[in-house]
Amino acid sequence: MSRKVMMSCALTGAGDTPGKNPSVPVTPKEIADSAIESAKAGATIAHIHVRDPKTGALSHDVELFRETVERIRESETDIIINLTSGGGGDWVPSDADPTRGGEGTDMQTPEERHEPIGKLLPEMCTLDCGSTNFGNMLYVGPTDWLRRQAKLVQESGVKPELECFDTGHVRFANQLIKEGLIDGDPLFQFCLGIPWGAEADAETLAYMKSRIPENSRWASFGIGRMQMPMVAESVLQGGHIRVGLEDNMYLKKGQLATNEQLVDKAAGIVETLGADLMTPAEARKELNLLDPYAKRG
């Protein structure tokens, strides 16, 4: 029997990408439609950020999350919904006064970052596990803030995906588990190749997966040109995968992609390597997820 692989599709992300690829979805309808098409192409999980429909910029508006989620669920398309809880964590030091945030700074408290999760109760949400240099910007995730976020996620009953952009993030994720802030079998996502986090290569992936608890599930992704090579490497090393326009805008050199094209290409890699894609129903059982249609208080 072949192994089953979960595939996440990160639909739109937070970066300044809509002007670079017109297929990056912006409005709730576009994001929902992209999730639906990605599900048809084989995606198990839709990872969702939202954007201001007028400007295309990152938004934290809970109502935009709500509309996107409702459109997906009302379509009766079976795909697991995984909302970001990264929220506002971007810090760009001001040239005039480096003690203050300059243009591009966007900060939220742990409670504000959790708001879409607490109000909409998706099946899954991301939980970043540390601060990271993103190019010349800093993503700010102090450990006490992350503990507060982890507790809020735990109380909501939503499954956290522990996003690790560097090896120290794996250490802190393990600390959250040790402190009882992560329920059930942990789910790790190794986020590789972002300047200046962990490298997107086989050796780094092997090291990171060697440091997690035995009862963990894990996935990884690479950005840009390393997206598809890391799909193959993750499958070969026994993990799950992520693709999508959040991480990479090209199907191949010079050819812009859609989300469903990236999903379809990754599905071909999975099948070529002798594995099968896991259905959302199978993944819910594997991850012990909440029923998205059950009434909860």
Rank of each mutant, 00 (worst) to 15 (best):
M1C: 11
K4G: 08
T12Y: 03
G19M: 06
S23V: 03
V26M: 03
T27H: 08
S34N: 06
K40Q: 11
I45K: 00
D61L: 09
E76S: 07
N82A: 01
G86W: 01
G89P: 11
P93D: 10
T109Y: 03
P116W: 00
L127W: 14
D128K: 14
N133E: 15
F134P: 10
F134R: 08
L138W: 09
Y139G: 12
G141P: 09
G141V: 12
Q154G: 10
G157C: 04
E161L: 05
T167C: 13
F172A: 09
N174R: 11
Q175A: 05
K178I: 07
G184D: 06
P186F: 02
L187M: 15
A206L: 12
P213C: 04
P213G: 03
R217W: 08
R217Q: 12
W218L: 10
A219R: 13
A219D: 05
R225S: 13
R225F: 13
A232F: 02
S234N: 04
G238F: 05
G244Q: 03
G244F: 03
E246Y: 00
Y250D: 09
K253H: 14
G254N: 01
N259L: 11
L262T: 11
I269W: 04
E271M: 12
G274I: 11
T279N: 07
A281E: 15
E282V: 14
L290M: 02
L290K: 00
Y293I: 01
G297N: 02
